[in-house]
């Protein structure tokens, strides 16, 4: 197995773990944690392809990963702010109990 295949398999496993977390947990914060894990798995793929790709000096994959990290940080801030506001409004972070859009 080439090193790149190993990294890709780890990233695939990490993505699946994150997806399972996002789909099976009730707590909204845990769902966000699952989404963060999925984003990180994508970053790992980008860096691995950059490292073993034909032109690492072009820095394409590296730049993509850096911008992706910045966007993920913004996403986490807004997502957790929304969770806090929903908790203040509905007094729960249980996603199974959030079944209507009316406030």
């Amino acid at each position: 197995m080439t090193p790149l295949a190993g990294y890709l398999l780890v990233a695939a496993l990490l993505f699946s773990i994150g997806l399972a977390g996002a789909l099976t947990r009730r707590n909204a914060i845990l769902v966000l944690i699952g989404i963060e894990l999925m984003l990180n798995a994508a970053n790992l793929n980008l860096i691995a392809f950059w490292r073993y790709g034909p032109h690492p000096e072009a820095l394409t994959g590296m730049m993509f990963a850096i911008f992706s990290i910045a966007v993920a940080a913004a996403e986490a801030a807004v997502g957790l702010g929304l969770v806090i506001q929903i908790h203040r409004h509905a007094h729960t972070t249980d996603l199974d109990q959030m079944n209507r859009m009316k406030g």
């Binding site: 496993l13 993505f15 699946s16 399972a20 789909l23 099976t24 947990r25 707590n27």
Partner: peptide
């Protein structure tokens, strides 16, 4: 701590990992 339809989520995640 798990959602009502956790089995479906687990199956979807396993399917995604199988494909990847």
């Amino acid at each position: 701590v798990y959602s009502r339809n956790w089995l479906a989520g687990l199956v979807i995640a396993a399917g995604v990992f199988a494909v990847l």
